[in-house]
């Protein structure tokens, strides 16, 4: 059992939770994730480790409550317990001093971006951060990311905060300005956002790293559910990733696979309907 040290809602349905997990806190590096499960019968949810405090033996997770399993996780109050936290999993980010870098985060992706951006800044890179969301309240971690970013730009789709539009707007300006064009771009967020960023940076030949979050079960390479095609090769996001060269990722396939369990009713045997029919007969 893992103690929840604190739990605060930082945006609608988005929680920052500090959890006591000393073994994970000691061995974790930026870019890695944990699998969290909240009791019997619940799903195993992969969540990026946003931060750690090895001395206190804690890790910080930023969790978006989207389904029953994640809603139950964020419902655990400070002082409560989560049954399973396993990790760290995945390959750590390769953090090196490149020079000028841009980190792009969409929605809750900013949470995944945070440890990466922090690591890049600590390694001495000149960091520009762009974060966006549907509206102002979904643009998260502005203050935290701003603390180590040279420049921070925000965008909202409805114009309620920052620049109106997508994260690609300020990114395009940076790419076009020889004075500000980055050596590398890191993008984390919904698949369409990461794809848009990659399509844009490809034109400028700027290396772009994305962090993928496909459906997975065990997180240790055993199930193969998280397979993604990268440069024509099948990779397992949990052991080979989660970060990949964005210009090589097959986003169309990724996006289709992400939707697997949302489309279940439309595919296959429609069991409930069938049972109802059988009962009628």
């Amino acid at each position: 059992m893992f103690l929840v040290v604190s739990n605060e809602e930082i945006a609608p349905q988005l929680h920052r939770m500090v959890i006591s997990a000393p073994r994970v806190a000691r061995s974790r590096k930026p870019g890695q994730f944990v699998i969290v499960r909240c009791g019997k019968g619940r799903e195993r949810i992969p969540l990026t480790i946003a931060d750690d405090d090895p001395a206190a033996g804690t890790i910080t997770l930023i969790i978006q409550a989207v389904g029953i399993s994640t809603r139950e996780i964020v419902a655990v109050p400070a002082g409560g317990f989560i049954s399973d936290v396993a990790g760290p999993l995945g390959e750590p980010t390769e953090i090196e001093k490149i020079g000028r870098v841009v980190c792009v985060g969409g929605g809750a992706g900013a949470a995944v971006l945070f440890p990466l951006a922090k690591g890049l800044a600590e390694a001495g890179n000149e960091l520009t951060t762009i974060i966006g969301g549907r509206s102002e309240k979904y643009v998260i971690l502005q203050k935290e990311l701003g603390a180590f970013s040279t420049h921070l730009y925000t965008t909202t789709e409805d114009g309620s905060g920052g620049e109106k539009g997508f994260v690609t707007l300020p990114l395009k300006r940076l790419l076009e300005d020889p004075e500000q064009c980055p050596a590398a771009v890191y993008a984390v967020g919904p698949v369409p956002m990461m794809k848009a960023v990659c399509d844009l940076t490809r034109n400028y030949g700027v290396r772009t790293i994305v962090s993928l979050n496909p459906i997975m079960v065990d997180g240790t390479g055993m199930c193969g559910g998280c397979r993604v095609t990268v440069g024509g090769q099948v990779k397992f996001a949990c052991v080979d990733g989660p970060e990949f060269d964005g210009h090589l990722v097959d986003f169309r396939e990724l996006s289709a696979r992400q939707a697997t369990y949302l489309e279940l009713d439309a595919h296959g045997c429609r069991l409930d309907q069938k049972i109802a029919e059988l009962k009628k007969d």
């Binding site: 619940r42 799903e43 029953i68 399993s69 697997t260 296959g268 045997c269």
Partner: peptide
């Protein structure tokens, strides 16, 4: 088939 549990795709 627990609500909120792990799903599986079924088929004919």
């Amino acid at each position: 088939d627990v609500e909120g549990g792990t799903p599986i795709a079924r088929g004919e």
